[in-house]
Design a protein around this nucleic acid. Sequence first.
DNA 1: TTGTAGGCGTTATCAA
DNA 2: TTGATAACGCCTACAA
Lengths: 353, 353
Amino acid sequence: MSAARYGVGVSTFNSVPPGAGISDVARLAGVSQGTVSNVLNHPERVATATRDRVRQAISALAYVPNGAARSLAAGGSRSIGLILSDLENSLFVDIARGAERAAAEAGMSLLLANSDGRLESEDRYLDLFAESRVLSTLLTLNDDQHFRQIVGRVADSRSLVLLNFQVDPAEYCSVDGHNERGGYLATRHLIDIGRRRLVFVGGPDSLRPVSERHRGFSAALAESGLTAAADVTPDWINRSDGWRVGTGLVEAIAAGRIDGIVAASDLLAAGMLQAFATLGRVRVPHDVAIVGYDNNQAAWDSPVPISTIGQPGEEMGYRGARLAMEELVEGDAHQHRAVVLEPTLIVRESTVS
Amino acid sequence: MSAARYGVGVSTFNSVPPGAGISDVARLAGVSQGTVSNVLNHPERVATATRDRVRQAISALAYVPNGAARSLAAGGSRSIGLILSDLENSLFVDIARGAERAAAEAGMSLLLANSDGRLESEDRYLDLFAESRVLSTLLTLNDDQHFRQIVGRVADSRSLVLLNFQVDPAEYCSVDGHNERGGYLATRHLIDIGRRRLVFVGGPDSLRPVSERHRGFSAALAESGLTAAADVTPDWINRSDGWRVGTGLVEAIAAGRIDGIVAASDLLAAGMLQAFATLGRVRVPHDVAIVGYDNNQAAWDSPVPISTIGQPGEEMGYRGARLAMEELVEGDAHQHRAVVLEPTLIVRESTVS
DNA sequence: TTGTAGGCGTTATCAA
DNA sequence: TTGATAACGCCTACAA
């Protein structure tokens, strides 16, 4: 996949002026390059006096090590990469924070990139990280097709951990929320508060988390001997989709054919709520109770705060980074693992008043 | 600043297995290394047949160029770095998106890092990017002190562009929103709708954007011969601060001593709104009109959608990245510039019903 | 159009 | 504890 991106021609940019190198430092401090390198990487091997002298030279020259040369000589960097699919969704921000914590604890750095869920960007940054020789890259994903496309192209030798997406441990390590359980929890909650005419709103089915949540919904219904009042599959799971869907549901709700909704995302739920509020014929939770998913800002910021399923985003990022590191330490002996994290029901006013 | 971070000792991680190198590709394709390099970087110099043969060898071996070696030999990377101070704030996400667009247009990549507004992280990532030899780094800032600390340490030779923070063009390029004008617009709007007992809520003053917005507030008042009904300086500008401040203001509003509020951020405004709604003695906008700042999700998601001052975040990022590239192209001839972007008033229900 | 060879700035090995 | 010196993988003149 790499080759396609080359041939972009010569850069028109002036490159960064050289600045002082390790040899300049060595000369000024009156030592050899090797010694300078040692005070940088193995200070304990250098006599205190020498070390101080070198450090002085370093700051005198404002010397900045060249990471490229360093990675080249050392055979690798000390960074891991994380490609996020949606910076607007606070879940991913949490993931980044968790991954960063894990990296920091291990003395490594975290490089971020935003793919905006576009396969093309996922690809590009996967390449970039591969070329940067990051120790490992973490990739958040939510689309089965993307996964298939990507897997085929990523070199086996590179460490890759999938986040927010569960895969067969035969292929990769992954950390995911238990979406089916989340869908179940949301539905169970609605049933527990007495709702019986339930709808799942979410789609398309190619979004893996969505279809899994749907499955949980169905399971909870079956368990109680209920059947879905309807199935609604919007084009996507954003606020505007919720608005559209909400508008279409008002009639059925007002007529009493629907009294509970499980939405595949908080944005979807928030959009529906807005539609209901605007059209004015449906009250939440009186006429219809709604549960969202992800515990985004949209959920607690909504006019009627939305009950939702919380995902442990920070933990997802943390565990993901840890898995990556284990993989690095264990080497060939490594067995991929699929970690599945438990979601939590968070009850707010959209289901109980 | 760099030196302090070294001496972390030897890595315990296995580095990535070597994989195929350019020489392997050359051998398989039956050409020289130079030719392989050319098909990668200057395909037009290579005969079609040769090129195809090389490309086949590349994919056969799953060859991934080593970015470190590449940057080293080429004397620089093709990435720019962006350090964000707050991923929770959608303004910064917009900035990232704009910068990414500019980078993509120029065939470059954008590396992200999240400093969470911590000086220490800003420092760390500045170092990391410097070592990575990114062509330029963009840094969002909002604190004067941080700026001073950082400037002293960053090597002059490196290109640095400040975002969301205006600095003397003698020092760096910067792109900022016109905060004083924004504060003015917000205040003017309140005056225009007949409010006269106005308060500015925001702090601390060390946050540069806040103090500038405050100045705009004062200017608008002075222009109309008014004086501030009060000045409120919360500890910070988050939702919880808004809640606290809001609670403290209820009395004065109910008594008619305050009828308009300019908040330094949407979160602050949203927090106050929540406090008012909970305590129940004050109606918005009837008893008090509120304007926020930034046009965050929090503003339009609020129970009463909040009027606000919109910042052109995407443009900020885009222009910042462009400035960085100009600086690179112009080299020594470059004159730093301070770009100031116009804010926009967005009217919602918190000021007019 | 292709091959040759020197060098990019570090790290690591081995001797001193 | 320190100093030489050989990689590291690739790019780019320059020569053929």
